[in-house]
Simulated scan of single mutants.
Amino acid sequence: MSKPFDMELFLAGVLTGSHTTRQRHVRQAIIIQAEIAKRWQRKTPWAWQRKHVAWFLDHRLAERTQATQYY
């Protein structure tokens, strides 16, 4: 059995800023990871392609208003 992918550990080396900012970025990355995994069964960022991230940005964020798309 393989271990589940840990997005927080994956991003730990590159995230800077306050604790709250880092937690927000990790939370956003986990949401992106879950949506891509559900749609294409790609569990880790190494398996993603540009089209996967573009799909998330175009289709999943289109449901949100302009003011809340970042969050």
Rank of each mutant, 00 (worst) to 15 (best):
F5V: 02
H19P: 10
R39S: 13
D6Y: 04
K43E: 15
V14E: 14
Q28G: 12
F5N: 02
R42W: 03
I36W: 00
T65H: 08
Q66C: 10
I32D: 01
L57I: 14
G17Q: 03
G17Y: 07
F10R: 12
Q41V: 04
T16S: 06
K38T: 08
H19E: 15
Q66K: 13
T20R: 09
K43G: 02
S2C: 06
R42G: 01
A37I: 00
K3F: 07
S2V: 10
K51C: 10
E63K: 12
R27W: 15
T68M: 08
K38R: 12
R50A: 10
R42M: 11
A34P: 01
E8V: 06
Y70R: 14
A62W: 01
F56I: 00
L15M: 03
T21E: 08
W48T: 04
M7N: 03
A62K: 07
D58N: 11
T65Q: 10
T65G: 15
L11F: 03
H19F: 10
Q66P: 06
A29G: 07
G17D: 00
T68K: 04
K3R: 07
R60A: 08
A34L: 06
M1K: 13
A37D: 09
K51H: 06
D6N: 13
G13V: 07
R27N: 14
M1L: 13
D58F: 00
T16E: 09
Q66I: 11
T20S: 11
F56V: 01
M7F: 02
M7V: 05
A67Y: 05
P45L: 02
Q23R: 09
R50M: 08
S2A: 12
W48E: 04
